[in-house]
Simulated scan of single mutants.
Amino acid sequence: MEREQLSHLAHGDHPISAPIGEEGLDRLLARAKLPPKARILDLGCGEGAWLTRALARYPDATADGVDVSEPALAATARDADSRGVSDRLRLHRTPAAAFAADGPYDLVLCVGATHAFGGLAATLAAVRAHLRPSSGLALVGEGFWERPPAPDLLTRLDAEPDEYADLAGTVERMERAGFATVHGHTSSRAEWDEYEWSWTGTLTRWALAHPGPDGDAALATAREHRELWLTGYRDVLGFVTLLLQRTD
């Protein structure tokens, strides 16, 4: 099975593609306090949880969602229909780094998708390029080291020691890129556990209901992911979502 399809299946019961719950998501969107007729962009929108909830909260806003996954974009469209916001949402199947906007945005999101740009620094540069000068806001979600990772964990994650900073260093990296931090949400252990149990469990149930090559591949992916989480990065890798404002 393709990676995009596996990810879509795994997020079936947790459409927020990051270890953050509905309450944290809603609180961050409320803190944005977007202006009338705001324009919103989500780079790597996945199943579109941030977009559909933002459009429901700000009833005169419009939004663009960008992702390479056809199943995820289809799920976003269905959710937008169910919430009555589809007329204010445009979806684009294209790499986030290649998206060409038709104007600046009041809010740009990239939560749990910095890999689409090759890392945090390139993500922040791309987000900044899409933002309205001075008043533009960004919501960026990124991992950080809760404690220094052991060398064997770095090997298992195929990561470098400086791929993430600690929490203070992550905030500093974002502010060095020309942003001020105006709010944030640090994912709790309970949010991480909910996300990981949902990811692995939803994919496992699908696999058991679909015996055969696809089911076998999905089950193997779920088990490998669960083992890496439980015996590797649990309590080592954290996640923070920061609300940022341009400082120029």
Rank of each mutant, 00 (worst) to 15 (best):
L43H: 02
A77S: 09
D102T: 12
W229A: 11
F117E: 15
R223P: 03
L137N: 11
P95I: 12
P35C: 06
E196R: 12
V140I: 08
D13A: 10
D162K: 08
V171Q: 14
D106Y: 00
F179V: 00
R176N: 05
S187N: 09
A207Y: 00
P148E: 15
G21W: 01
G178C: 02
E160Y: 04
R93M: 12
S82Q: 15
D102M: 11
D87Q: 03
V236D: 06
A98M: 15
Y164L: 14
P104W: 11
E4I: 11
T202M: 07
G238K: 04
A121W: 05
E146W: 05
T221W: 01
G169E: 06
D67Y: 01
P19A: 15
F99K: 08
A80C: 11
G103E: 08
E2N: 12
G201C: 07
A126N: 10
L91V: 03
A18F: 03
S7F: 15
L43K: 06
A159K: 09
G84W: 01
D166T: 01
G184Q: 15
L55T: 00
Y105H: 13
L219T: 01
E4C: 06
V127F: 05
P211G: 10
H115D: 15
A97C: 12
E22K: 07
L89R: 01
E196T: 14
A100H: 09
D162N: 10
T181C: 12
H183R: 15
R39I: 08
T231P: 03
E47Y: 02
D193K: 06
A209T: 00
D67I: 06
H130P: 01
A101I: 12
F239I: 06
V182S: 13
A116P: 11
A150K: 13
R223W: 09
A18T: 09
F144M: 09
I16T: 13
A32C: 04
R189P: 05
A165Q: 06
L230E: 14
Q245P: 03
V182I: 15
I16N: 15
V236P: 02
A122H: 14
L25T: 04
E47K: 07
G84P: 02
G65R: 02
A75Q: 07
L34F: 04
V68K: 14
H92V: 11
L55K: 04
G103A: 09
T76H: 02
R83S: 02
V68R: 14
L107G: 00
G46N: 04
H14S: 13
